[in-house]
Simulated scan of single mutants.
Amino acid sequence: MSENVQINSHSIVSLTLGILSIFIPFIGFILGIIGIIMSRKATKEMDKTNQTGRGLAISGLICSLVGIVMQIFIVLGFIAFFLFVRAV
């Protein structure tokens, strides 16, 4: 008599893309944006249906945001490095 609980697949995709956005340079920015979109889509679907996975969606959102911020810092670091090297 166990319930058949379904986990929202978009929340799993969101978490996966969020983790990949942290570890893959330059492409991680795009993966982070897609991860945020998937996280929002998952939370809206979970409000309408009886699926679980809200924690996965929130974790995916946080990882995607961290990945985007890291990618911005990496790009700014490269720009600053090359400007400094060219100035010297």
Rank of each mutant, 00 (worst) to 15 (best):
G60Y: 03
K41G: 01
I7R: 02
L17Q: 07
R54V: 06
V69H: 09
S21Q: 00
L56M: 11
I7H: 09
F82C: 07
T52E: 07
A80R: 13
E45Y: 03
S2H: 14
L76G: 14
I34V: 15
I34K: 13
G35D: 11
G32M: 07
N8P: 14
C63N: 07
L56K: 12
V88W: 02
F73K: 03
V75T: 10
L17V: 13
L15A: 05
N8K: 09
K41S: 11
G55T: 02
G32K: 03
F29M: 07
I79N: 06
L17H: 05
S39A: 15
V13D: 15
M70K: 11
R40W: 11
G32F: 00
S9Y: 10
E3I: 06
S59Y: 06
M38T: 10
M1P: 08
H10K: 08
I74A: 05
I19G: 04
I36A: 06
V88C: 08
V75D: 04
I7A: 02
I12R: 09
G60W: 04
T52G: 11
C63L: 08
I68P: 01
S59G: 12
M70H: 05
F23Y: 00
S2L: 05
I7S: 04
I68R: 02
K44P: 10
S9P: 10
I7G: 02
F73N: 01
L65R: 08
L20E: 01
I30V: 11
I7L: 06
G77M: 03
I68L: 05
F84D: 08
G55C: 02
M1Q: 08
F78R: 10
I62L: 10
N8T: 09
V13A: 15
I79K: 14
L65D: 08
F82T: 08
I30S: 05
K48N: 10
G35M: 05
S2P: 11
V66T: 12
I68W: 02
I30R: 04
F26M: 07
K41A: 09
G77W: 13
I58K: 01
T49D: 08
L61V: 06
V13F: 06
F26A: 08
E3Y: 12
I79F: 15
F23C: 05
S39Y: 00
F26W: 09
F81Y: 12
V69E: 05
V66K: 00
G28T: 09
K48F: 07
